[in-house]
Design a protein around this nucleic acid. Structure first.
Length: 495
DNA sequence: AGTGCAGTTGACTTT
DNA sequence: TAAAGTCAACTGCAC
């Protein structure tokens, strides 16, 4: 039992022992104190919710077991990060602080700055390797794809073979209510933790990926055809590198549709990091429109009737409501449907993307700030880089749920209507289901004209080109010889 | 058999 | 894997 100073490994959203460089490096240098800090202030942020916490708590519980098997269970403390670290420093002494770089919102940035300042003042070295393909202080997007390849092809870091026990009370994993989280019923929430991550990865690569390409656009088929690993990447129970290497190995053994599905999956792993890179390079992404010409364009909307109808799945557009209710009850929705929910809110209902994004963030059990805010801005057309994508809620329903199975499941008021009538209930007089907020085609036309008039404004293009240079993928969207080529990056990010 | 025409399909452009 | 509009080429049918 070690009694001297410890190598402190601070787990954040990297709740695993495999491919965990800080843990491995720390363990090679002396006794390790593995720590998970539950920060009530973080969980009080407007983008946080109990379902996200439950996923991370599941993961921390399994991590505690895995670390205990190595010799030292996960230590859990509740409080402000610097205060928790300072208490451990006083009682045990800290030789070095090991943690993964985290790309996250303003709270996390400020907290990491405080921790670094505290460590500097106490003479504690901080080691912070990265765990995604996002690069801190990136000078240029040129060559990013090559660096992502190199990062994901680096050897996996083996878990330490044993940890020397440290004399410390491990502490309990608090219930959501104990840290001030509001009740957040989510009966269909998928369990977090390493065991589930491994099972999902295996079943996806062994067969589910076969229908991935065709089915990922549908919220119904995507439920089983998508990898469903997003919450595991967000909590770190599986590293991107582990997934990429397992995917490449499975790809080499597979053929036909399975191979194509795995190819799409690997592409999306790169996109995952590509979007996190945007927030890493531009922390204001969660607060300000990337292209300032879109700032102040829409009404804030929070608390208005149309916002509440959208947020509660009562817009009167069946496919939209089915998607929102599915998300509320399960914490998951496929990428395309998420994009449509943003599109309807920010285009048809002309609501500001910030409150819209916060509502969705809380409903996403797999909330990943970098991906989320990049996507919310892209789908609401405020990046200035991508083509304006406006989804027709009826067409999407007809395309992705032609028989109405998904709508019937989540909007039981419409169960008696056959398809295709179920996609336009206002034409068939249904009781117990609201009339639509408006004529979606007319609302779309108004939004389209407003957004295109911004694009035609003076100086718009000059700013847009600068944004493309800073954030855009080098594969598409770059201006070539004065003419814009394929201004949109085609992607569905769902994993 | 060849012509005229309504309707469909797909490439492409615009918003 | 945006949607809607345009237009040319094509198809199938009637006569």
């Amino acid at each position: 039992m070690a009694s001297g100073p410890v190598q402190l490994v601070w787990f954040k959203r990297d709740l695993r022992v495999a491919d965990h460089a800080p843990l491995a490096e720390a363990a090679s240098r002396g006794p390790v104190l593995p720590l998970w800090i539950v920060e009530p202030e973080l969980w009080a942020e407007p983008d946080a919710s109990a379902r996200q916490y439950r996923v991370q708590r599941d993961a921390a519980g399994e991590l505690r077991v895995d670390l205990a098997a190595l010799g030292q269970p996960l230590v859990v403390r509740v409080g402000e990060a610097v205060a928790v670290l300072e208490t451990i420093r006083r009682t045990h002494g800290i030789t070095a602080l090991w943690t993964h770089q985290e790309t996250t919102g303003a709270f996390g940035h400020a907290r990491d700055r405080r921790v670094r300042a505290w460590a500097r003042a106490r003479g504690i070295p901080v080691h912070e390797p990265r765990q995604t393909g996002a690069i801190r202080a990136l000078a240029s997007r040129d060559g990013w794809a090559r660096r992502w390849e190199a990062f994901t092809r680096a050897p996996l870091v083996p878990a330490p073979s044993a940890l020397e026990p440290v004399a410390i009370e491990p502490g309990r994993l608090p219930e959501p209510a104990a840290i001030g989280l509001a009740p957040d019923p989510c009966p269909g929430l998928a369990r977090g933790g390493r065991r589930a991550a491994e099972a999902l990865l295996a079943s996806f690569l062994a067969g589910r990926a076969e229908t991935y390409r065709r089915a990922m656009a549908s919220p119904l088929a995507g439920w089983s055809a998508c990898s469903r690993l997003s919450a595991h990447f967000a909590s770190g129970t599986l590293s991107i590198r582990e997934a990429a290497q397992a995917g490449r190995a499975a790809r080499s053994r597979a053929g036909g549709a399975l191979r194509e599905g795995i190819d799409s999956f690997l592409t999306r792993l790169a996109w995952h990091c590509h979007f996190i890179q945007k927030l890493e390079s531009e922390p204001a992404l969660e607060r300000r429109a990337l292209h300032p010409a879109y700032e102040g364009l829409r009404v804030d909307g929070a608390g208005t009737e149309r916002f509440e109808r959208w947020a509660s799945g009562c817009t009167g557009w069946p496919f939209v409501d089915a998607c929102m209710r599915c998300l509320a009850e399960t914490g998951w929705l496929n990428f395309r449907a998420r994009a449509m929910l943003v599109s309807v809110a920010t285009m048809h209902l002309w609501l500001d993307w910030r409150p819209v994004g916060l509502h969705l963030a809380r409903l996403f059990a797999d909330y990943e700030p970098g991906i989320h805010w990049s996507q919310v801005q892209m789908q609401s057309g405020t990046t200035g880089v991508n083509t304006i994508r406006m989804y027709n809620p009826v067409k999407q329903g007809l395309d992705q749920d032609p028989d109405g199975v998904f709508i019937r499941r989540w909007v039981p008021e419409l169960a008696s209507l056959p398809a295709p009538a179920i996609h336009r209930p206002w034409e068939h007089g249904v009781c117990g289901y609201p009339a639509p907020i408006g004529d979606h085609a007319a609302l779309a036309a108004i939004a389209r004209e407003r957004l295109w008039s911004v694009r035609r404004g003076d100086g718009y293009r000059r700013v847009a080109d600068a944004i493309q240079l800073r954030h855009g993928s080098r594969r598409s969207g770059m201006r070539q010889t004065g003419r814009r080529v394929g201004a949109q990056t085609a992607l569905d990010l769902e994993t």
